[in-house]
């Protein structure tokens, strides 16, 4: 019999908690702006997980409140944060060398689309009037040892965001290793996409709705 959890899709917090629980002790982690920042709320920093922020800091702590707010201490989303013990600061070229040089264990990014081979599209809708803004997404996607995506499995119009081939402009090729969604967690493997768990839908239902050969 299914557990009650499996009968409902996960909330954003539910997805964030799953990701936080999967991040190994001692990892150096970058959380992308937007939804992935929720993962920080569920990370036990005493487990030794160290957060990196692209604007030049390791050991980033939670959002700053009240007197803690310092305009010189912000995260990638420009939100004031606090230091944790053992934090360090460095300039942008060093920060991106850290990212691009494969030193970060995990990054968590949002996405418009992820393909079955791990291609990521998350920076540009391709719309003619859209202002392109890439930030550090391409560097992170290619540079981290593991790139996790956090997103809803379906867009507002009901179309799947896990797709055979991305139709939006790419951020990186074959860079995503795992996709956490409200309806399931998916591993990108050389054999195809394996569903690790599903929420609020059976695997067959997800195969039907995504049109993908999801592996069990």
């Amino acid at each position: 019999m299914s557990s009650p959890l499996e009968k409902t899709p996960l909330s954003k917090d539910g997805i964030a908690k799953l990701i936080a629980d999967d991040i190994p002790t001692g990892s150096f982690v970058n959380l992308g702006i937007g939804q992935p920042t929720l993962v920080a709320d569920h990370l036990d920093l005493e487990r030794g997980v160290v957060l990196h922020t692209e604007n030049g800091m390791l050991g980033m702590g939670r959002a700053a409140v009240g007197d803690e707010i310092d305009p010189d201490l912000i995260n990638a989303g420009k939100v004031p944060v606090v230091e944790t013990p053992g934090a360090s600061y460095f300039h942008h070229a060093d920060s991106f060398a850290m990212m691009r040089g494969g030193h970060l264990d995990v990054c968590v990014l949002g996405a418009f689309q992820v393909s079955v081979t791990g291609d990521l599209a998350n920076w540009h809708t391709g719309a003619a009037d859209a202002i392109p803004a890439v930030g550090g997404a391409m560097d992170l996607a290619m540079g981290a040892k593991d790139t996790y995506v956090m997103m809803t499995l379906f867009s507002k119009d009901g179309s799947a965001k896990l797709v055979e081939k991305c139709t939006y402009p790419l951020t990186g090729v074959a860079c995503v290793s795992r996709v956490y969604t409200d309806h399931g967690v998916f591993e990108i493997t050389p054999d195809g996409v394996r569903a690790r768990s599903t929420y609020g839908a059976t695997l067959d239902e997800l195969r039907e709705r995504t049109g993908l050969d999801l592996l069990d």
Binding site: H92, F96, G135, G136, M138, D139, G143
Partner: peptide, 8 residues
């Protein structure tokens, strides 16, 4: 320009 390319 990707941010890492800008810096590098």
């Amino acid at each position: 320009v990707p941010q890492g390319n800008l810096a590098e």
